[in-house]
Nucleic acid binder design. Sequence first.
RNA 1: GGGCGCUUAGCUCAGUUGGUAGAGCACCGCCUUCACACGGCGGUGGUCGCAGGUUCGAGUCCUGCAGCGCCCACCA
Length: 869
Amino acid sequence: MPGPRASLLSLDPARLSLPEKPALEGLEAKWTPRWDADGVYAFDRSRARDQVFAVDTPPPTVSGSLHVGHVFSYTHTDVIARFQRMRGKAVFYPMGWDDNGLPTERRVQNYYGVRCDPSLPYAPGFLPPTTPPKPPMSVSRPNFIELCNRLTGEDEKVFEHLWRYLGLSVDWSMTYATIGTRAQRVSQIAFLRLLSKGYAYQVEAPTLWDVDFKTAVAQAELEDRDLAGAYHRIQFAKPDGGVVEIETTRPELIPACVALVAHPDDERYQPLFGHDVITPLFGVRVPVRAHTLADPGKGSGIAMICTFGDTTDVTWWRELSLPVRAVLQPDGRLGAVSWGTKGWESADAERATRYYGELQGLPAAKARVKIAEQLRDSGDLVGEPRQITHAVKFFEKGDRPLEIITSRQWFFKTIEFREPLLKRGAQLQWHPPYMQARFENWTNGLNGDWCVSRQRFFGVPFPLWYPIAADGRVEYDKAIAAEEHRLPIDPSTDVPPGYREDQRGVPGGFAGDPDVMDTWATSSLTPQIACGWPDDPDLFARTFPMDLRPQAHDIIRTWLFDTVLRAELEHDSLPWTNTAISGWVLDPDRKKMSKSKGNVVTPMGLLEEHGSDGVRYWAASGRPGTDTAFDTGQMKVGRRLAMKLLNASKFVLASSQLQGPITAEVDRAILQRLGQVIDAATLDFEGYDYARVLQRTEDFFWRFCDDYLELVKGRRYGEQGPEGAASANSALAAALSVLLRLFAPFLPFVTEEVWSWWQPGSVHTSAWPTRAELDALLPEHAPAQDSRDQQIYDWATTVLFEVRKQRSEAKQPLKVPITQVAITAPSADLALMPSVDADLRAALRVHRFECAAGEGRTFAVAGYDAAPA
RNA sequence: GGGCGCUUAGCUCAGUUGGUAGAGCACCGCCUUCACACGGCGGUGGUCGCAGGUUCGAGUCCUGCAGCGCCCACCA
């Protein structure tokens, strides 16, 4: 473990090796393999928990392409990780790939031109056609999963190359994938443990359903989209012969109507409560009920309850104990109905059958148009439909509005943990703090348990089978769980204990659970997956709860919330102590950087054009949680900074063999100032404010170059004798050592390059600088002396500035010496002059300063030497 | 409808216990200077969204308003 050593600050001429012409090109290719070979970022798992800094890296979705937003936020994490490593922590920084779930399935379908048909048998050795066939060819589920693994494997190689090129200090030996064996094992073990605790349960219930993907989805995966719709005003017949009018945007659900509902205080409808009305077209008697959720101000104040049109219908249906009369099928079309049979009693079954026959088989949107015609013909439509735009719930990856379909699904208990979860949210350190409000907002707004089953293929299966009764009925309430040591298993190919494969799907035999888990049910276990739970308790004890979860703010409701929930349910603990929330990368026109634009500007292209250090500089300038504009200008600035660092370092290290005590006032002053920068930067870093660290360091560095380097240039070349040169050289070397280490987390390539010119080992495993290191070089300083040194330095920069300005205004080139500068200033200022007179004359090319005591400060250039011929 | 954030130079943004407005980019001028033209030096540019309030003093604290963005809810 490298600790602070004086030798980091001094120069060993025997070790020095300066390039003729330093360059940034090729530094990524030069250093990435060396870091790998030297294990610079390898996690030392012998260290105790308090000496470890564990990062729960977001596993990027491999089915997409990486875009600048990834580069942006992953750089933030890397900067923090590098700081912690230099502070002496063993940094646990694995990378994961999220290759599980729907996005991968979609990509595989399009890429290979296939679709999954679970009824087909596995075809060993199957290879997809070289060009995607049209229409897509059907493949078995195991073959489909092979293709998913094959494509994600290729994508992951590309991703890893980009991350290495960017300079992420990840330990690549610990990489995991959310569809990998280990993630599946953790996911299945965690599921079975929740099941045994009673925290996981299955139920046949109305569930949010995507009709294109034909799967259940969770509340967290919803989004609202504005859609054109129309209010239809429709008559229901009252028993006394009158009518009651309702308004609906979904008239196609009239056959699914089970009741009307109005507010209990609504005097208009109170007489109807407890009585029945007759549905138009289908002649079904439905009751009129009272419920406080009915809004007297909306539509006609009385609403139709269908099974199911929206989530409010579900609430009414449950709380009013209404029957189910479902017409929508999982594919979003209206299914077959036998009017006149039980549950479908109609006053005129023949008429109902005639009307419904025109609707059956249509998708909901088409049925809506058709039924409006029917209602118009039958005289039950009042006026014409009124066009509106309203927000409708969609699956975030879906193309058609969600429906609510009754089906058997697995849930994790969530609602009853609302209070403990809110407490965990308050314990977590949020960077920036206001992001905690997002978490609380979401937690308080939860309206149901987490539906975790998906009717898809490429995901982690439920490790369960069900007995099949003698009558062929699947006994879902008698689930057979796999033994933990066998996990992961796939119930579609593995056989439960006590059964044989030939008993699959037959009466008296068994059936595997056909579903896979929500991708978040696995992603919410990234701390457990990365930290070795439960198979490597030693690693787990050294890394969990982790220190940092970095992520973007749009997935607080999913990834962050779900991870907190799983740690609460499994470990009664927070999964990490800190979370750093990154903003988004915005287009210059303030829109979120879109995928299409991200593809136009590829991350690799940016890294090649501006250098990884340049791109990292831009990324690290974005403050935690703040959306940041995509700005190649900032990348150019970063590249310029890296270039400046190369050149300034070359200057500092050249002709620097003569080292000695730091005696000159300005030399002491610059190191004092640098010490203050270290203190402030360290505090900022501890608060995760990396952007401010960079800003402070950069600010100091430019002033260091512009003023200090110019000021000592003559002296360090020996113009004032060996002691002066030695003082300057020692101060320069010390300052460079500190600056390289301050910049190292941000600009890993250029700092490593310069470090290698004169220091052993990697700058990235060197110690984070401290003020005490620099103080040790100034053994006899006292506060009064420090203060005077600072006054001298300030005075020197004032003179530099004033004389430069006059030279600029006089448009005199630097090669023309100034004959004399007349300075009038208070005698306290003039008393500082002797300490810097020689430095200033050299830096400004002034023959002499003529000083006179007086009020205020004036600097008058008396004249210039004749320009050389 | 509820919540959170933002609003400072043409652009991107700093401004940490309230004390005379900052940086970079862009723009203008000068300079090939022996670390650096992938450069250096200097300069122009802002009634800090609006209106009140607290204070000797407000970009900073309080109240209200407006615009923008995001999250959530409602969606008959």
